[in-house]
Nucleic acid binder design. Sequence first.
DNA 1: TATAACATACCAACTGGTCGGTATGGTGAT
DNA 2: ATCACCATACCGACCAGTTGGTATGTTATA
Lengths: 204, 204
Amino acid sequence: MSEATHESKQRLLDAALTVIRAKGYSAARVDDICDAAGLTKGSFFHHFKNKEELAVAAAEYWACTTGKFFASAPYHDAADPLDRVLGYIDFRSAIIQGDLPDYTCLIGTMVQEQYDSNPAIREACERCIYGHAAEVAKDIDLAKARYVPDADWNAMDLAVHSQAVIQGAFIVAKARLSMGVALASVTHLRRYIEFLFSHPKGKA
Amino acid sequence: MSEATHESKQRLLDAALTVIRAKGYSAARVDDICDAAGLTKGSFFHHFKNKEELAVAAAEYWACTTGKFFASAPYHDAADPLDRVLGYIDFRSAIIQGDLPDYTCLIGTMVQEQYDSNPAIREACERCIYGHAAEVAKDIDLAKARYVPDADWNAMDLAVHSQAVIQGAFIVAKARLSMGVALASVTHLRRYIEFLFSHPKGKA
DNA sequence: TATAACATACCAACTGGTCGGTATGGTGAT
DNA sequence: ATCACCATACCGACCAGTTGGTATGTTATA
């Protein structure tokens, strides 16, 4: 990929994130995205074969940028793996800021509508969610081995559950137009994880 | 409303649930819904002013039918409020059956795309989610008063969190095309509630 | 001058919504 | 009983606007 290509393509991808997160994938028109990017259809279809390809590229772009974003977050500095896990949760709380389209998830929005209609988009979303969950699961696994090695739950399951809670929090926040309810759910998630790590067998 | 009116309108509403849950609101064409109902556009626009009005009616219909469905579920028979709360969670697990469009939530699907574009739909979704959460909160409140009256969380918050977990579970299930991951999240939710009710102060 | 990057104009297909018309059934006067 | 009158329910052809996508032309750059 040339660098020159990059800039306009990037702008289209960034525009896609904004528009799709606000309106959903189906309602997001190619022209909306072009307008948001300050470009035209000629440019759009020069860089992407069709709307679906843009969606897949947007999902991958999202996975890439959020991946770097989380990878560079300060919670990784903690020496204790459990502190990193809880730090991740706290970091997720901290980035719930501003307007809804700013903190909600492109992936959850797209997969909700397109899981049955568009396999390529669904698969890209699956890769993104599970890729991120696998990263989180690493620290969960280390923390589990250190503190509750015999607990009857596994790290990846808990990581995926965490993603589910966050996704669900966004939905409730959208219904209420309030980030407060999203934060409340993430707080419950944090407490659950604290519980899990203070009970050797994972039982109440 | 005459009974004759009812039947076709009902068929359109039922068709709307099916089509919207499978394709999302934007991608659900009026003709798709008419086809699914075995009726024509003439009938559709006789019963509903426009597509938005159908969506709002569908949300209310959903709230009504699921409301009755949960109200008549056997978990209400338990004498202990905590058993009813856990019974509700188990019931939610039990109804995760069949294909994805059969157990996922119309409300979550619609509000995800339309929260910013269509206030009437968002408000209908908010009423539905919070109305259901308020019902669940009643038993949570009773159980809390009995077992952990001093805990530092409140019933409605936990009820809304439960809805968030369930909504999030659907999203992850859609990404993976698997109801197993949805069940896993609901299982985590159950364990969290068990934890909360075995710790007087709500602390780990 | 060759090629990538973009703009402009355009099209065919589709979409929500309209409209004229029909079928059916109820009501009240004769 | 029958007929005029009217309302509701429904049909399906149609329309105007929109949409994803294409064709063609222009500009920048190497």
